[in-house]
């Protein structure tokens, strides 16, 4: 068998197999998206999209995902920088812990948050500071918890690609550590930062599991786009669900195209 895969014939077979897998996967993704069209017509689609409930969900999703992305990036910048450059005991353990939100199910993360807000400390925060449980801040918190790990990973790889010597040179030119970070490292990380922000924002827009567990699925109150899909399907309103799904697909495609454009023109460091 292995002898059959040697030489030029083997090379061609390997190339053919990998390209076939790629084409099959692309056909599968495109066909399941197109197949949804069979369930609806254009007029129903547009009227579903412009319904008050869906417009509310669009607005809420855009606002919460944007706030969550800003918070997540602000958290991720110092954390990713520390993991990338700092040396301290137990760094590997801390690094692995930060990946937990990526591998744990979002529903479980939402449940953990819900349990936290039932402890005396959590309940006190929820009652006296900001109302998270079954409220809009809960959506933002759930999104932040889910996307911050992704933002940290993306920014860490950006910082890893930036030679520390840029900062060192800046320091010999009279800049303090903080100034060197702001004036040199951040400009060098600009493209990585934008790419991380777009990807995490797109992930936040699509977040469902943690959001629904912590903030609930109340129509016109905590109804984000994924929650709208869930509520539409639950009430057998397939047209409305399809309209929202298309909207999410379009947002994802635009985000990925912008990402691709940015990552192509990154600084050669």
């Amino acid at each position: 068998m292995t002898s059959l895969l040697k030489g030029i014939g083997g090379d061609r077979a390997f190339k053919g197999a990998t390209i076939s897998a790629l084409v099959l996967l692309a056909i599968f993704i495109v066909s399941i998206i197109i197949s949804m069209l069979a369930y609806t017509d254009w007029n129903t689609f547009i009227s579903a999209l412009l319904s008050e409930e869906i417009l509310f969900a669009i607005r809420l999703s855009l606002i919460t995902a944007t706030i969550a992305t800003i918070i997540a990036i602000l958290i991720a910048i110092p954390v990713a920088y520390a993991i990338s450059y700092a040396k301290f005991p137990g760094k590997d353990l801390v690094d692995s812990m930060l990946d937990l939100p990526i591998v744990i199910s979002p529903v479980a993360l939402g449940a953990i948050l819900l349990v936290f807000f039932n402890t005396p400390l959590g309940a006190s925060i929820d009652d006296n500071l900001i109302k998270f449980v079954f409220a809009v801040p809960g959506i933002i918190l759930a999104q932040v918890v889910v996307i911050s790990a992704l933002a940290i990973r993306l920014l860490k790889s950006t910082f890893d690609s930036i030679d520390l010597r840029y900062e060192q040179v800046a320091r010999t030119l009279g800049l303090s550590k903080v100034r060197a970070f702001i004036k040199v490292t951040l400009p060098l990380a600009k493209d990585g930062l934008i790419a991380a922000a777009i990807l995490t924002w797109a992930r936040a827009i699509g977040e469902f599991g943690a959001t629904v567990t912590l903030a609930g699925a109340t129509a016109m109150k905590t109804e984000t786009l994924p929650v709208a899909i869930f509520l539409s399907l639950a009430s057998a309103d397939v047209e409305k669900a399809i309209a929202v799904i298309f909207l999410l697909v379009i947002i994802a495609v635009i985000a990925l195209l912008i990402m691709r454009k940015i990552t192509r023109k990154r600084y050669q460091i």
Binding site: R171, T172, G174, L188
Partner: peptide, 30 residues
């Protein structure tokens, strides 16, 4: 003393010029 207070000029290996700045801005950085 931290590096910024030593008044030392440093040219590292491979020069490490700031790629996001033009030549004049690199020289004017400090």
């Amino acid at each position: 003393l931290p590096p910024e207070e030593r008044k030392i000029g440093y040219v590292p290996q491979d020069y490490v010029l700031f790629p996001f700045l033009k030549v004049a801005d690199n020289i004017a950085f400090g």
